[in-house]
């Protein structure tokens, strides 16, 4: 009889792309839970909208590109993109914000560049930046942490806000309740305060800041850190990029803080506010858009960390994760070109 032919190796890992993505999603749960707890259920609705939009967009574009739809959708990559974007935007942002962001991420950033594996930019972050630039008001109005607002944002309330053109309400001041629930992020507040001549101490005395960082933000970041550590343990991600980001951010902010504590916040504040942990473990570690070699990844991460610090401290935007990641994405091929591991049997440098 004739036997079946296949090339070696004949065994392989069972950890396939879909499973990797699935694990990423599962590891996001602690962070999402914390976010829901502190910022209400708006995020849940955003996630739902984002996932539906992402799958619809992906299916459509795959059909247009004559690619297998079912197997590609099953790789869960659209799910991860949708989730990350939904987590990143303000929980009570109007529905069309997340729809536009998701469509942009999936169709333009991912598929117009050739689909999974070929995109140059991190889809979620590119979508986020598009939204941030296009709709700055909606994108900077965060729900105040539960403890500050003393009013929970439940599903029905979130639904109402998200689908009832919240921005109009906010802008016209018709809905005081909503006005009370949304406010600038701690980093935004800090930036505004600093620009107004206040010192960090004065600014940090505001109720939005807790003992160490922004209220609620520390916990959310901590939850993402937990999720990230689980991913490391599961070998879903490798440590290099996260290490690079956190180390660089810590070092840079320590320098600033030591040199001028009045205008620079503490490293802890940097590490545990905004999207630092989310970026360090879930966004920048997107392998497609990162550098590939171990050393390259450390450089890639360090670049993001430094950029986060620089943009936060000297730039015009309060948080900088998305910009830092996109800038580093652009450098990834360059890093890969110059940072190659020394092959076995070759002298270093050759």
């Amino acid at each position: 009889m004739a036997f079946k032919i296949a090339s070696s190796p004949h065994v392989g890992t069972t950890l396939q792309t879909a499973k990797v993505m699935q694990r990423v999603v599962l590891c996001l749960i602690p962070g999402i839970a914390a976010q829901l707890y502190f910022f209400g259920y708006g995020t849940l609705l955003q996630i739902a909208i984002a996932i539906i939009t992402a799958y619809a967009a992906e299916a459509t574009i795959l059909a247009l590109r004559n690619r297998p739809i079912k197997s590609t959708l099953a790789d869960n990559s659209a799910l991860v993109t949708a989730l990350l974007l939904a987590i990143a935007i303000p929980p009570l942002a109007p529905w069309w914000v997340i729809v536009i962001g998701t469509l942009f991420s999936i169709i333009i950033v991912k598929h117009l560049y050739g689909g999974l594996g070929n995109n140059l930019f991190n889809p979620a972050m590119a979508g986020y930046v598009l939204l941030l630039i296009s709709f700055p008001v909606q994108m900077t109005d965060w729900v105040s942490p539960m403890s500050a607002a003393q009013q929970s944002v439940d599903i029905s309330y979130a639904w109402k806000v998200i689908f009832n053109s919240t921005s109009d309400i906010i802008l016209t001041g018709h809905n005081l309740a909503i006005d009370g629930t949304t406010m600038a992020t701690p980093l935004d507040t800090l930036k505004t305060d600093l620009s107004m001549g206040l010192t960090t101490h004065e600014s940090l005395a505001k109720p939005i800041f807790s003992s160490m960082t922004g209220l609620g933000w520390f916990e959310v970041n901590f939850a993402f850190l937990i999720g990230g550590l689980i991913m490391l343990k599961l070998k879903v991600i490798r440590w290099h990029i996260s290490f690079g980001i956190l180390t660089a951010l810590f070092i840079c902010s320590s320098f600033g803080f030591l040199l001028n504590p009045d205008t620079h916040v503490s490293p802890i504040m940097h590490l545990f506010s905004g999207g630092t942990m989310l970026a360090a473990f879930f966004i920048a570690t997107d392998p497609v858009t990162a550098a590939t070699s171990a050393r390259g990844r450390i450089i890639f991460g360090a670049m993001i960390g430094a950029l986060i610090y620089v943009i936060r401290t000297f730039g015009g935007y309060p948080d900088a994760v998305a910009f830092a990641v996109l800038l580093a994405n652009m450098c990834a091929p360059f890093i890969d070109h110059y940072v190659r591991p020394r092959t076995y049997g070759h002298r270093s440098g050759s």
Partner: peptide, 26 residues
């Protein structure tokens, strides 16, 4: 006992191969 036949999917540049490579290749 052996891997089933599966279609090659897009490389996601995860870099696991580089970590596994005993010759330190990319």
């Amino acid at each position: 006992e052996i891997s089933p036949d599966s279609d090659e999917k897009a490389c996601i540049r995860c870099g696991e191969c580089a970590i596994a490579c005993p010759a330190l290749l990319l």
